[in-house]
Amino acid sequence: MSVFPYLVAGWICVIGLYGIVTSKHLIHLALCLTVTQSSTYVLLLAVGYVQGGGPPIFKGVKLGTTAVDPVVQSLTLTDIVVSVTVLALILALALDVHDELDTMDPDRIAELQG
């Protein structure tokens, strides 16, 4: 198993975080959060990959056939469900911000400080 998937996962995570830190638009920020989250998919799938393994569906397959790890796939699915909820919520909040203040800039909603 090569090291590239892990490097890709790390890179996606870091650019997502960079996007969040520098974001000037709430929708952009929500998407950057999704980018960061995508790194967890890549990482999880890379962890469960088996060289030459088929899909983990065992109906009608000979016992002992190599398959990739089904656990990480279910983790990825759960992860998607959880994160879509969060994304929907942040987008809804962003819409409220837009309706109230007519801006999408996270710097301009900072009312409480210090």
């Binding site: 995570c13 975080l17 969040i20 709430l26 920020l29 959060l33 960061t36 989250q37 790194s39 967890t40 959880v82 994160s83 969060v86 919520l89 942040i90 909040l93 962003a94 409220d96 911000v97 109230e100 203040l101 996270p106 909603i109 900072a110 009312e111 409480l112």
Partner: peptide
Amino acid sequence: RMSALQGAVNFAVVNTVGGY
């Protein structure tokens, strides 16, 4: 209230990053 949105967005984003 505007500050409620600020609070919710900040809460959501920081904790989601923590969750990842």
